[in-house]
Design a binder for these strands. Structure first.
Length: 388
DNA sequence: CAGACGTGGGA
DNA sequence: TTCCCAAGTCT
């Protein structure tokens, strides 16, 4: 552990080249990276054609998402929406159902909106101009650069969390990478590293290196850039990148109820903005202080639908983790307290509702926790299960 | 600029 | 079980 000995950390265990400062060895870094990528890149469905559409969809899909999961979603997406025109012509309902389980549903809504914009404003051809790409809904600075460089070969860097990590280590960036002095430094080095005419390969190589080798727990033994790595030379790889502030996870108690009537269940469609925008759910909400889950679900139904309901069954608890909360969802079976009351709700938290046959739920996009509950109650026949 | 926006998997 | 993610964008 003691790195104060004369040899740089890691240099003693095996034969190694002397440290070569990265600032003076850009061409060697570029070559080492490309050579490494040529041999070690994973075979992925979006690394075959490099059409703008495929690059775009894969980049959006992989935002905040693990590669493993992205592959299945990507293949199913391309089978269902093979090109921009097919996507533009799709119903949002179908698009969200394809996306179900991936989270951050605004990505799917933006993808659809952007496809329609491309049809309307670019004659159906994906724009190659960086500004036009950036103007598409859901395309921010990262994704615009990724598409421009990977699909169109523009000499631009892609700076995602992987690349930030690689650069923070190789160039020993010693302040939080997400914030400004460091973010600018990272962008500058990222740009200087892009070789002429090879932006596609280089940018993917940087991200792939971050994903496979320069991970949070780095594998310096197999890193093609080890000899150029400043933080490794200093024995502080584990201290790079410097982290920002971390989120506080707060526990939340919530309820949801499956209201049944004549063999059907009540579901409602959430508003377009906010969490789970345009997805279908069983009504519910938070448990207030000094309130039991049973009381909460009755109150929430009254507030959201004007139905007076009664708890008829307890369906247990579903635990679901989020970025900023840890949800404990108490689930109930409900019936109308007065069987004679109208089956027409007065919606206050939804844009539409329906009394659905249980099989119908399979065609509706629902949040993961609600899908979990639906599956638990109405076990889907294996042949019908195309749930992610 | 900080906070919202999801999820299943690995340590 | 709990913690921490993983190829960001929008407001």
């Amino acid at each position: 552990m003691d790195s104060s000995s004369s040899a740089p950390a890691g240099a003693s265990a095996r034969m190694s080249q002397p440290f070569a400062p990265p600032q003076q060895n850009i061409p060697r870094i570029q070559r080492a990276l490309l050579d490494w990528f040529a041999v070690n890149q994973r075979r992925l469905p979006w690394r075959v054609h490099y059409t703008p559409y495929e690059v775009w969809v894969s980049e959006v899909m992989l935002q905040q998402t693990q590669m493993e999961r992205g592959v299945d979603y990507f293949n199913r997406w391309m089978a269902r929406f093979p090109d921009i025109a097919a996507l533009a012509a799709a119903d949002e309902e179908a698009v969200l159902r394809q996306w179900e389980g991936l989270g951050y549903y605004s990505r799917a809504r933006h993808l659809l909106a952007a496809a329609r914009k491309i049809m309307a404003e670019h004659g159906g051809a994906f724009p190659s101009d960086l500004e036009a790409i950036r103007a598409l809904p859901g395309v921010g600075p990262y994704t615009a650069g990724a598409i421009a460089s990977i699909a169109f070969g523009e000499k631009l860097p892609c700076v995602d969390a992987n690349v930030e990590r690689v650069i923070a280590r190789v160039f020993d960036v010693d302040s939080p990478v997400k914030q400004d002095p460091a973010a600018g430094v990272v962008r500058r080095w990222a740009l200087r590293l892009v070789p002429e005419g090879l932006a596609r390969e280089h940018n993917q190589a940087m991200m792939e290196l971050g994903a496979l080798v320069c991970r949070k727990k780095p594998r310096c033994e197999v890193c093609p850039l080890a000899v150029f790595c400043s933080s490794r030379h200093l024995g502080i790889v584990e201290q790079r990148p410097v982290p920002g502030k971390k989120a506080v996870i707060k526990p939340v108690q919530a309820v949801t109820g499956v209201l049944r009537r004549a063999g059907r269940v009540f579901v409602q469609k959430r508003p377009p903005s906010g969490v789970w925008g345009n997805l279908w759910e069983f009504p519910g909400g938070r448990v207030e202080p000094d309130e039991s889950p049973e009381q909460a679900v009755v109150r929430e139904f009254m507030e959201e639908t004007a139905f007076t309901v009664r708890v008829a069954a307890t369906y247990g608890i579903i635990r679901h983790g989020y970025t900023t909360y840890r949800l404990t969802l108490h689930c109930f079976g409900l019936e109308l307290a007065d069987a004679a009351q109208s089956a027409l709700p007065q919606l206050t938290a939804a844009t539409e509702s329906r009394w659905a046959r249980p099989e119908e739920l399979d065609g509706l996009a629902m949040p993961a926790a609600h899908r979990k509950l639906a599956d638990r109650l109405f076990a889907v026949a294996p042949s019908a299960a195309h749930t992610p």
